[in-house]
């Protein structure tokens, strides 16, 4: 089993399961209401031309967030799945 990392460290096309969302307040609320909660599987599908924000694919939709917001999300990379959705 791979080590836990911050969402910012994920590579493009890498898949991971969210372990914890450490953001509080407004940011935490926004992140959670979009369905980024522990257990959700996400895939990084791209980064903006200046490497920030990052675009994530959830099961049914795509969303973007800034790198400093992604830092609050701890993920467990899914080893075998990289590239599965590309």
């Amino acid at each position: 089993m791979a080590e836990l990392i911050g969402l910012r460290q994920m590579k493009i096309n890498q898949q991971a399961r969210i372990v914890a969302v450490q953001a509080q307040g407004d940011l935490g609320r926004r992140i959670r209401e979009m369905g980024l909660i522990p257990g959700t599987v996400i895939t990084v599908i791209g980064r903006a031309p200046l490497r920030d924000p990052v675009a994530l694919r959830l099961l049914d939709f795509t969303l973007t967030l800034r790198n400093n917001e992604a830092d609050h999300i701890i993920v467990d990379p899914l080893a075998a799945a990289s590239g599965a959705l590309s």
Binding site: L27, I31, M34, L36, F61, T62, L63, L65
Partner: peptide
């Protein structure tokens, strides 16, 4: 800044 968390609609 307001959180950027934003949907990229199809």
């Amino acid at each position: 800044s307001t959180p950027f968390v934003m949907e990229l609609p199809p």
